[in-house]
Nucleic acid binder design. Structure first.
Length: 259
DNA sequence: ATGCCTTCGATCCGAAGA
C-alpha cells in the first residue's frame, strides 16, 4: 500500500491540484496539513468521488489537518492528549485514524516563528505532548506512523544552507532535542529518496527562486514504529508536485509499504 | 523551463508562513 503526507497550504486554493495528484499518485492513505478551512467546508464529496473517505478537523483561516483513505477510516481522534493551547485555543494540528492495516497521525507542528516568540515554547510543548501521546501507538504491534509537517530540519544537511539559518527556528538544538524525544518514544525517521539532486527536501519558499535554485528544507517527516518501518519498500519526495503555477510550497512525501 | 511569494479575511493592507 501507499501512504503519503502533504502540506497543501490551503485546501480551497489547492483542490484541483490535490484531486489531480490523488488520481495520479495512487496513494491509499493521505495525510494533509494546512487546510486553512473549517471542517464543514472540507469537500468530502469531491474526495468521495475520487474514492476516498475523509476525516478532517479545521477551524478556518489557519492550520487544519485531514486524513484521506480508500482502505477504511476508523477510530478517528482529533488532537493530542495533553495538547497545549495557543491564544486560549486548542488548534487543529493533529488527527489520527486507523486505515486498513495501518494507523496514522496527520500532524502540523507549530512553526515557532522566532526563538523569542511565545510560539516557540508552544512548539516545544506541542512536541513534548506528541512524544507522550505517540508512545502507546509506537509500542503497539499495529504499523503506526506520525506523519506531517514537523517544521524542524533534523540535521544541518536537511536544509540548503545552515549558515543562512543559524539562530533561527527549525534548526535549534531545542527543537532537535524535542524531535529526538518523539523518536525516543519508538518512532524512526523514514528517510526518503530525492527524485532530483542529492537531498530529499520537502519545502521550498515561494520567494527568491528558492525552488529552481533548490534552496529547500526537509521538514515534512514520517516517523514510524518498527512494524511500519519494517514494511517500508520505498519512500520518496514527489518534487514534481512543487512545479508550476498554483503549487503548494511543500511537496508530498510518499511511502510504499509491503502491507 | 522548476522562474523572482502566496494565502486568507478584511477590506484595497496585514499577518503568517519557515
Amino acid at each position: 500500500m501507499r501512504v503519503a503526507t502533504w502540506n497543501i497550504n490551503s485546501l480551497k486554493a489547492r483542490l484541483d491540484r490535490v484531486l489531480a495528484w490523488l488520481d495520479a499518485a495512487g496513494a491509499d492513505v493521505v495525510c494533509l496539513q494546512e487546510l486553512k478551512c473549517a471542517t464543514a467546508d472540507v469537500p468530502a464529496d469531491a474526495f468521495a468521488a475520487a474514492g476516498y473517505e475523509t476525516a478532517a478537523w479545521g477551524t478556518g483561516r489557519w492550520n487544519g489537518v485531514a486524513i484521506l483513505s480508500r482502505v477504511g477510516l476508523t477510530d478517528i481522534r482529533e488532537g493530542l492528549t495533553g495538547q497545549p493551547q495557543f491564544g486560549g485555543e486548542t488548534e487543529p494540528r493533529a488527527i489520527a485514524a486507523t486505515c486498513g492495516p495501518v494507523r496514522v497521525q496527520s500532524l502540523y507542528i507549530p512553526n515557532g516563528r522566532d526563538t523569542a516568540d511565545p510560539h516557540f515554547p508552544y512548539k516545544l510543548a506541542f512536541l513534548q505532548a506528541l512524544a507522550a501521546d505517540a508512545a502507546k501507538d509506537a509500542a503497539a504491534g499495529v504499523p503506526f506512523a506520525a506523519m506531517g509537517d514537523y517544521n524542524i530540519c533534523p540535521t544541518d544537511d536537511d536544509l540548503w544552507d545552515i549558515d543562512a539559518w543559524t539562530g533561527t527556528t527549525h534548526v535549534t538544538a531545542d527543537e532537535r532535542d524535542a524531535l529526538a524525544a518523539v523518536q525516543a518514544a519508538g518512532l524512526a525517521d523514514v528517510y526518503p529518496r530525492a527524485l532530483k539532486y542529492d537531498r530529499p527536501f520537502t519545502f521550498w519558499d515561494y520567494r527568491n527562486l528558492d525552488f529552481p535554485k533548490n534552496r529547500g528544507m526537509r521538514i515534512d517527516l514520517a516517523l514510524a514504529n518498527p512494524a511500519f518501518k519494517d514494511a517500508v519498500t520505498d519512500a520518496y519526495v514527489d518534487r514534481n508536485e512543487r512545479k508550476g503555477k498554483g503549487a503548494s510550497d511543500h511537496a508530498p512525501l510518499v511511502v510504499d509499504l509491503d502491507l
